[in-house]
């Protein structure tokens, strides 16, 4: 399963030379500023995993996300914040081509993963999704046992591994092992919401992705379960690149290294388009935002 149409993409587990990444992935920050897109990237993100250049996302004729240019750094937690309808989830779902499943959805511009265009015609979305996993708002455990939930991804990807070891490793990594080790054969639906979400994270890392996309992962959880997921995210950031969409600004401030603030602009026809307003280290976004719209949003004056 590893070889195939996208074999030129880096295996996340393989040693990578930083020089070719620097050549293909990293963008000159001054160029972004010069083009006047209103995006301020105060410092380099380091090793670039995602490079977005002038990305637009459409649903049919509707342009949900307009003109996003940014880079996402390796082993960082990047938070997307912004009011409802600002396109942040839509943009996140285009990182692993989940938008392909929605008829009429398409992406324009360059969305590159380690320098390779995710939307190039020869790219297999299945290979993309194996490397770029996703956790959703509602814990979408499968109607199977806890064990089978974790084993599903490795099985469909034909991974030759000792499944018992892998299941234990992933559940341990997701801080769930001690709670479920005696109930692995039980239905995943028997778990609480917070446990289900940690099971989904375990299931996600079982296919050994490099990136985990999280679309409001704590939206349906109580504060205690949320705190557990946030702790888990910080631990996982040592090995994974995490991009999280959240409505909870405190969460973005607590967990993320970098924050991107999106908002919805209304054009002359009265149609809303999501746009990136400001992107930078989380501390500066929350303490000294450059754009008055960011300041209004984080101080609760709108959205």
């Amino acid at each position: 399963m590893m070889s195939g149409t996208m074999s030129e993409i880096h295996d996340p587990n393989a040693p990578q030379s930083t020089s070719d990444l620097a050549n293909t992935g990293r963008m000159d920050v001054s160029a972004v500023l010069d083009e006047g897109r209103g995006v301020v990237v105060p410092e380099s993100v380091g090793e670039v995993v995602f490079n977005l250049d002038d990305v637009h996302v459409f649903y049919g004729d509707f342009e949900a996300v307009r003109d996003v240019t940014m880079q996402i750094g390796r082993n960082e937690i990047t938070a997307f914040i912004g009011p409802s309808g600002c396109g942040k989830s839509t943009l996140l779902r285009s990182f692993n081509r989940m938008n392909d499943l929605i008829p009429g959805a398409r992406v324009e511009g360059l969305l590159a993963y380690h320098g390779f265009d995710i939307y190039a015609p020869d790219v297999d979305p299945i290979e993309v999704r194996r490397r770029i996993g996703m956790v959703f708002q509602k814990p979408n455990v499968f109607p199977k046992s806890i064990y089978e939930n974790v084993a599903y991804g490795p099985k469909v990807n034909g991974m030759k591994v000792n499944m018992d070891d892998l299941v234990e490793e992933c559940l341990t990594r997701a801080a769930l092992w001690d709670e479920v080790k005696d109930d692995l054969k039980k239905s995943a639906y028997a778990l609480s919401g917070g446990q289900q979400q940690r099971l989904v994270i375990a299931r996600c890392i079982a296919v050994k992705p490099e990136v985990i996309l999280m679309d409001e992962p704590c939206a349906s959880l109580d504060p205690i379960a949320t705190a557990k997921i946030e702790d888990l995210m910080k631990e996982l950031a040592a090995d994974y690149t995490i991009v999280i969409v959240t409505h909870n600004m405190q969460q973005a401030a607590r967990v993320s290294d970098r924050t991107a603030f999106f908002t919805a602009d209304v054009d002359a026809q009265g149609v809303r388009h999501g746009r990136l307003v400001e992107y930078g280290p989380t501390r500066s976004i929350f303490t000294a935002p450059n754009d008055p719209r960011t300041e209004d949003y984080i101080s609760g004056r709108f959205g």
């Binding site: 399963m1 692993n96 989940m98 499943l101 299945i126 290979e127 999704r129 194996r130 996993g133 996703m134 959703f136 979408n140 455990v141 499968f142 599903y152 991804g153 469909v156 990807n157 989904v200 299931r203 996600c204 296919v207």
Partner: peptide
């Protein structure tokens, strides 16, 4: 979505 996101 969960299955597709695992590369199924």
């Amino acid at each position: 979505d969960g299955a597709y996101a695992l590369g199924a």
